[in-house]
Design a binder for these strands. Structure first.
Lengths: 337, 337
DNA sequence: CTCGTTAACTAAAGCGGTATAGTCAATGGC
DNA sequence: GCCATTGACTATACCGCTTTAGTTAACGAG
């Protein structure tokens, strides 16, 4: 059965014009309820599906949203979080027969080049912008390209649509917990300071540590790789006054840090408590399992999808929604110092 | 909206017809070299890009290939391998301005439904088919849908295009290595037996173990989740005669198995050697690091991409290429029993 | 009974390319 | 020097769907 049925085939079968079929299938006025029902029935029977390209060409939607991750191929491995987000997005979007165009690129420059390509090829109707930087060039460029986007993780200060969680509150939860256990000397293995979320966490830790009477929480920045996570841990533990607790910005670095501690003979959690800012299988397969912040990442992806659908439907919306604050899941990697 | 140049704009500027511009841009005869040069120059200056939808509508390509992964959201976590494949594919394909449409779905049924959607919406020109099953329903359906595909990991027995590695040889490498270390009792924590690659590995282990004079290598099947990997390990180690070495079909399960061993007080590698069939960051962040089979997954993705491009250009090709056999990387998780 | 309105359609013009069928002048064989 | 061929283009017909501008026929108001 070679050729898919087109709107014209349906029109012929029902005995109306192609235009009427289009009206009926898109739920817009111009056909009687009776005719509409007959058309829909015929479309169902003939197993008709819209031809995406034809729709997109008509000047309307491409039926896809984009997600670009800028990652060095070597630093690859921390995509657990985005894999879950993607799953949540796709489940929500495919119900409306939207696709997610996901692509991995090397850096922000390549990311921007890709946006230009997508814009001119009309591949996507909107984007999810992630890993926002302190001085991010992307929003301005996307505005210029007229590609609407939702940001993930950035509070919608600029009146732009975004889905975000309260990073600072999450960090405070951790600090309070560690302080309650009796820790005084807490360190933080952070991501690159260029990222806004990193900056927010670093600031929150510092401020709240002082407030709680701990030693000023110090943050060490890394590139999020397991190698730098391990190196940072090694450096921290080799100090004359090593921290009694380390907070890691990602589960991958936390696991790597745990490995280093074991290697150095530093017992976890007796001599060192470890907390991860991210959750995934990883925190559960290492031994001891890691205390971490957990959130429903799948649901977050679904929220993002809803937000994107709304944005695509009406590019003028500036709706910003706050996702649940990650909650602390206590496992075996934390204890009194 | 953004006044993106069309072929007609170029035609007007150069002073020729749109058809001539199309000929020039697609490198086909019908224009003089001189005119062609002028057209290309103008297109470059005006920053012209083909409108994907328009091309796809013309009956030609959608400019995308698809990759669907059937995964239970809860079993998510073993996507390292496919993330790397994806990266390799995208780097190769985006040079030809092809996109990869990747989607996560729950099961094979949903996967097939998605293929039907994609076929009727003309979203993709070809597919990468992964995780082939012993009696796989997908090839027949894709034939019916006229969606060309390349299989990954399955030897191209049926004259279909595929990119595959020698699973049996890889397993034999492991068995030889363990036998040389002096192991007699080797177990295998495998994936679901429904997968062809699992079946091949199970058979290869069994045959080669006997050949080498080991106890008949036994395989335990799992769903690839860390939970079942852990459970299988626990069961194996609780036997009166526990194996002295366990081969895991995935790095995730190997890491989970290592966790169980540590928990049970079974020392690795002294009392138990662990080998993982897959490599990723995971094998390097646990302690001890895992001996594993390693391969250049990124390159594999690139090979897949080449194969797909060839297939899309000529759907009749049945070219099958063999990728390098994974090689054994010895780390700290294996030793003499 | 006539006119204006509206519901329910039909007709037709794109959207941006591709592909095919001309058109026209230059070329070359005999 | 005439006719056939070829090269270089132009004109045009789609591709499948959306959308706007008609076109009817029915209906109600005056």
């Amino acid at each position: 059965m070679g050729n898919r049925p087109t709107i014209a085939d349906i029109a012929k079968r029902v005995g109306v014009s192609p235009g009427a079929v289009s009206f009926a299938l898109n739920g817009r006025p111009g056909v009687s309820e009776q005719t509409r029902a007959r058309i829909l029935e015929a479309a169902r029977e003939m197993n008709w599906r819209p031809h995406r390209a034809a729709r997109a060409l008509g000047g309307s939607q491409a039926g896809a949203v984009g997600l670009v991750l800028a990652r060095d191929p070597r630093t690859l491995g921390s995509e657990q979080f985005y894999t879950q987000i993607l799953y949540g997005m796709q489940d929500t979007l495919s119900a409306r027969s939207f696709a997610v165009q996901m692509q991995l690129v090397r850096d922000t420059e390549a990311e921007i080049a890709l946006y230009r390509d997508w814009a001119s090829e009309h591949r996507v109707d909107g984007l999810l912008l992630v890993d926002l930087q302190v001085d991010d060039p992307r929003p301005a460029i996307l505005d210029e390209l007229r590609l609407p986007f939702v940001t993930l993780g950035s509070t919608g200060e600029e009146g732009r649509p975004s889905v975000w969680a309260d990073d600072a509150a999450a960090m405070i939860t951790i600090v309070d917990y560690l302080a309650a256990l009796g820790h005084r000397h807490v360190a933080h293995v952070a991501g690159p300071p260029i990222y806004r979320h990193t900056a927010r966490r670093v600031a929150a830790l510092h401020e709240h540590a002082i407030l709680r009477g701990l030693d000023a929480g110090e943050s060490v920045s890394t590139d999020f790789s397991d190698a730098q996570g391990a190196a940072a841990t090694r450096a921290l533990l080799s100090r004359p006054q090593p921290p009694t607790a380390i907070i890691y910005d990602s589960d991958l670095m936390a696991a790597a840090g745990l490995g280093v501690a074991l290697e150095l003979g530093v017992r976890v959690p007796q001599a060192l408590s470890i907390v991860s800012f991210d959750d995934s299988v990883l925190t559960r397969i290492v031994h001891p399992q890691l205390t971490c912040l957990s959130r429903d990442t799948y649901a977050l992806g679904a929220q993002v999808a809803e937000s994107l659908l709304q944005l695509v439907a009406d590019p003028a919306t500036g709706h910003s929604i706050q996702a649940e604050t990650p909650r602390l899941v206590v496992r075996g990697s934390t204890a009194r110092p």
